[in-house]
Design a protein around this nucleic acid. Structure first.
Length: 285
DNA sequence: TTAGCATGCGTAC
DNA sequence: TACGCCTGCTAAT
């Protein structure tokens, strides 16, 4: 259940654990069996991530993985693999194993197809080679809500429902604001914030966006406890008081996904502020 | 025990 | 806009 930071962490861990080493490649579930057989015994050259796409390069080709909503890629030392009926892909060197379950896609692709995956992706704030001008070109021309463009992987690669809700809050932007009404200065601030928050999430392994006076320690409140783990302002906090103003967090559906925002901090028509509310999370600042 | 939901996306209407 | 898909966790029965 990833946003972009998860795929980047996986790419890093796959390369670190298995890079340049011959691997046993198998698909106990069977749905990737033919491709697994082609790769079995070959060496993993390296792994990379572009947005939510995970690209695992072998000598003969690339395994293209997209986790979708429920996919998981977990490292363990369990032999034999637990629950093999659901195990789409297992990579192992005999000591460690990486187990893929429930992905949206797991396909063996050619170098040409790999290049197309990269080319079709929008700029990814986690990557050093990302060009935010490509995102601005689309944002500045679109009449769709800015919240919709934030979830468009051809505009902001790797941004998912959590980073969307949080970056809109941190910059006091009305989620329904038509994208073309966003100023260049606020766009730049949003992009810079995504770079910082998403890269920090790669390092820490969870999404933290709460800063300064709004941390559990500063507010004397209990830390958030759920399976997402991170300290956030509005994501999945519908009905709970905004940490800044106390107004209950609102939610609605946009393109089939839940959108969360504070109606007071992000009122209708609000075009945003260049400085993030609360500043940067402690771990980053 | 079951139903519903989730950090997503493609296709059909 | 609605639905299907893949798995696992949680809340409701």
């Amino acid at each position: 259940m990833p946003e972009g930071h998860v795929t980047h962490r996986l790419a890093r861990e796959l390369t670190r654990t298995f890079g340049e080493r011959p691997l046993t490649v198998a698909s106990p579930q069977g749905r990737f069996a033919d491709s697994a057989a082609q790769l079995d015994g070959g060496s993993l050259v390296g792994a990379d991530a572009v947005g939510k796409h995970l690209l695992i390069d072998f000598d003969p080709g690339t395994v293209w993985v997209h986790l979708g909503l429920i996919g998981k890629f977990q490292f363990n030392q369990s032999f034999p693999a637990p629950n093999p009926a659901t195990l789409r892909l297992r990579l192992t060197d005999g000591a460690s194993a990486a187990d893929l379950r429930g992905p949206q896609w797991c396909r063996l692709i050619t170098p040409v197809e790999r290049a197309a995956v990269v080319a079709n992706s929008g700029p990814d704030p986690i990557r050093g080679d990302a060009d935010p001008e490509r995102a601005w070109a689309k944002v500045s021309r679109s009449r769709k809500p800015f919240a919709a463009l934030l979830m468009d992987q051809s505009v902001f690669a790797g941004v998912g429902n959590i980073f969307r809700a949080e970056v809109l809050f941190r910059h006091a932007i009305d989620p329904m604001l038509p994208a073309q009404r966003l100023s260049r200065s606020v766009f730049d601030a949003v992009w810079d914030d995504l770079v910082i928050l998403m890269r920090a999430a790669v390092e820490v392994g969870r999404i933290d966006t709460v800063a300064g006076d709004h941390t559990p320690e500063a507010m004397g409140r209990d830390p958030r406890v759920d399976r997402h783990g991170g300290e956030v302002y509005v994501y999945r906090r519908a009905g709970l008081p905004c940490y800044v103003c106390g107004t209950p967090v609102a939610t609605t559906a946009l393109a089939g996904r839940h959108l969360y925002w504070c109606p007071t901090c992000q009122p209708a028509g609000a075009r945003g502020v260049p400085t993030a509310i609360g500043g940067l999370p402690e771990a980053i600042a």
